[in-house]
């Protein structure tokens, strides 16, 4: 098998806050191959966005990558200096931020902000750049793209701005696209249109994509593989179909059961009880134990390591779920 395009090993990103050390990402490992879409899922605070920012080297103080490797195309980009990293950002790896309302600079036209990417990363002349921007805007479903290029972000609706941000991320033809909740502000039809576009981009260019989302339905439609995060750790990962059909981790099961479109008939629709604990107060043991119906005394004593369970599934649980009998 070919070497993965992105290979994250034991990534640790911590924040030194006044309230104490927040281990937002604590020993995360997964890989993404070229042409593949990997879904990053988990409840709020799981560390999904922090992983994204770690990859593109945009963790600002008080945060810091304190351990692990981020191997991109064979070299550890977590160790690159700012200058070298600038040549990776936008060109090799593009990112769509979680909050598209605020990602665009209010004092420049949309066209100029799109053009910036092409100016930085291509040798195209002005006319060619403009043509490409127009085509990209049309691709993300913005009509009258030619005119829209000269408008300012405040003249766009929220959904439109989100599409512009996606267009910017796709513009330079990066090899890895990190999309952090790319379709949250969009209605369902537009959402599926955008997702299709993003998938087509991946298929056409052989790029890889990390798709961050709460929405397991989106993941099941889009992703080849899924990484489930909880409190800064990978608690389960594997092929999408397998995870959706038969998760090994109780948390993943809980996530699936809370989604009407996926939960199968045997499991009633229900929310996971309790809430995500404060990362700083987990201490020893499994971070999910307070909410887990299978928890036993071992779960409070030792935190489970990620280990192979069956098929493609790895899970971090002392008592993984059996394959459901059909």
């Amino acid at each position: 098998m070919a070497e993965p395009l992105l290979d994250i090993r034991g990534l640790q990103t911590h924040f030194h806050t006044f309230g104490g050390l927040v281990k937002a990402v604590d020993g995360v490992s997964f890989d993404v191959k070229a042409g593949e879409i990997v879904g990053l899922v988990g409840e709020s605070g799981g560390g999904k966005s922090v992983i994204g920012f770690s990859i593109v080297g945009l963790i600002d103080p008080p945060g810091k990558i304190v351990g692990g490797e981020i191997r991109f195309d064979g070299r550890d980009i977590a160790k690159l200096d700012e200058r070298a990293m600038r040549r990776v950002r936008g060109r090799e790896i593009a990112m769509v931020f979680q909050d598209p309302m605020t990602s665009l600079n209010p004092v420049y036209t949309v066209g100029r902000q799109m053009d910036e990417v092409l100016r930085l990363h291509t040798d195209l002349d002005k006319a060619a750049r403009r043509a490409r921007c127009i085509r990209m805007l049309e691709d993300v479903g913005i009509s009258e793209a030619d005119k829209r290029l000269d408008a300012y972000p405040h003249q766009f609706s929220g959904g439109m701005r989100q599409r512009v941000v996606i267009a910017i991320a796709l513009l330079a033809g990066s090899r890895l696209i990190i999309a952090d909740e790319p379709t949250t502000a969009l209605d369902v039809t537009v959402q599926s249109q955008i997702l299709k576009l993003m998938r087509r981009q991946v298929e056409d260019t052989g790029a890889a994509m990390i798709l961050v989302t709460h929405d397991l339905a989106v993941v099941s439609e889009m992703a080849d593989r899924v990484v489930v995060l909880y409190c800064g750790r990978v608690i389960e990962r594997g092929l999408t179909d397998e995870i959706i059909a038969n998760p090994a981790h109780p948390y993943t099961r809980g996530l699936l059961d809370s989604i009407p479109r996926i939960a199968d008939r045997q499991h009633r629709l229900r929310q996971i009880p309790g809430t995500v604990p404060d990362i700083r107060s987990i201490g020893l043991g499994c971070s999910f134990r307070a909410r887990c119906s299978r928890a036993q005394s071992l779960c409070a004593e030792r935190s489970p390591d990620l280990a192979h369970v069956r098929g493609s599934l790895d899970a971090a649980c002392h008592f993984p779920l059996e394959e459901a009998a059909r």
Partner: peptide, 8 residues
């Protein structure tokens, strides 16, 4: 941050 992510 987004501008930085573009590589500016």
């Amino acid at each position: 941050k987004f501008a930085r992510a573009k590589g500016a």
